[in-house]
Amino acid sequence: MSSPARSAASSVASFAWYYRPLEWLLLALSRLPMAVLYKVSYGLYLLLAYVVRYRRKVVLTNLRNSFPEKTEAAIEELAHQFYRHFADLMVEILKLATTSQQELRQHISMRNPEVVERHIARGRTVIILASHAGNWEWSLALGTLMFSTGADGVYKPLSNPFFEDFMYRLRTHTGAGLVPMRDTLRHMVQNKDKARPISLVSDQAAGPEDRPYWTTFMHQEAGFYTSTERLAARFQCPVVHVSILRLGQGQYELVLKELYDGDAPMPKEGFPITESFVRHLEQDIRAAPAFYLWTHRRWKHKRPVSQ
């Protein structure tokens, strides 16, 4: 896999030699046609849902709390639909390691790139708020191809050196730039004169120590990072939400919605952009609940009693 040169901030240590056979296996699998990989994913689905029962308690708890109106039978069915999608997602992400630009475009499209392009034409950085819905990894790869300036994505580095290195190369295969989460502000300062979109997966669980914005999300209190408001205000960045719609197996469409134009005065109190993002995300989840990442412990933090 080819990838752009890394900055010192995003470089990773070399990994142990015994990971090499795993790397060769993963790369060999990624070269298989998607039709074959989806047969592999069906086996993964059976393994995850019925044998390993991967994070089953977390999945069922999240679904029950998010959809209290559903019967237990409906929750169980939704859980199995999720595991089927999750298995597909795993092979789809692996495919990024060797996929061509042409092949990627056959599987994912963007309905309205002009929502971002009109701000790029004005020389502005655009913050794109994504979530763990659909296939967020393919979404960054496509954005890199669709936008005239390419695109960057903020990510949280993995602790395992091999998987960090492998995922870095996979994510940058189509030319995306990656920015470690801790370096987001530094990156924005250094690139404030470059009109290049930057994507944030913004449904991460922010804990009390992060001074989050607390709101109701899928019938539960949840804390959200507030960096979007601060970055948008400091750099006059428009903010766009991306809905990642799954149209069928291996078929996705991105739909962009502007949440903030970068010109209107930012309120001194509150977090209206983040609140708008949460409401749009809720709408997407309710429309297609099986395609959200229910293994994610999104509601693990609780609001402090004093707040």
Rank of each mutant, 00 (worst) to 15 (best):
R230N: 07
I244P: 01
Q283R: 11
R297G: 06
A233E: 12
E253A: 06
G250T: 06
A233P: 08
R286G: 05
L247M: 14
W294T: 02
Q236M: 06
F271N: 07
R234A: 13
T295Y: 01
T295H: 04
S227Y: 10
V240G: 13
Y252C: 03
A222C: 15
T228L: 09
T274S: 07
S243M: 13
R234P: 08
V278G: 12
Q283S: 13
F291L: 12
L256W: 07
Q236A: 10
R234Y: 11
F235D: 05
G223V: 14
M266R: 08
A288P: 05
D261K: 00
T274F: 00
Q251K: 14
G262W: 04
L245F: 11
P238D: 04
Y252M: 07
E229V: 12
V278E: 11
S276R: 10
R230W: 12
R286K: 07
A288R: 13
T274W: 00
W294M: 01
R246H: 13
D263M: 05
P272H: 02
R297Q: 13
K257Q: 15
K257F: 15
A222Y: 03
K300E: 01
T295K: 04
K300D: 00
R298I: 04
L245G: 00
E258Y: 09
H296Y: 14
R279W: 05
T274K: 02
K300W: 03
Y225S: 08
A264S: 14
L231H: 12
T295A: 02
E229N: 11
F224H: 05
A288F: 10
F224M: 14
S227V: 15
S227T: 13
A290D: 11
Q249F: 01
K257T: 13
L254Q: 12
L293P: 04
G248H: 07
P238T: 01
E282R: 00
M266P: 03
E253H: 11
S243H: 15
R234G: 07
E258W: 14
G270W: 02
F277L: 01
A287P: 03
P272Q: 02
D284G: 08
F235G: 04
D263S: 05
A233N: 10
K268H: 13
L281G: 08
P272C: 02
K300P: 01
F277P: 05
I244Y: 11
L254K: 09
R234D: 08
L247F: 11
Q283Y: 08
F271A: 03
D263W: 03
R279E: 05
C237G: 08
P289K: 00
M266S: 00
R298M: 06
R297C: 09
L256Y: 10
Q236D: 09
E275C: 05
A287S: 09
Y292H: 13
T295L: 02
K257M: 05
V255F: 05
W299E: 01
D284L: 03
S243Q: 14
A288G: 10
V239G: 06
P272G: 04
L247V: 09
V255H: 08
W299Y: 07
R246P: 01
F291S: 11
G250A: 03
E253K: 15
L293S: 11
D263C: 02
A232F: 15
F235Q: 04
S243E: 15
E269F: 10
Q283N: 10
H296I: 04
Y260E: 00
R234V: 10
F224Y: 13
P289E: 09
K300Y: 03
T295E: 01
D261G: 02
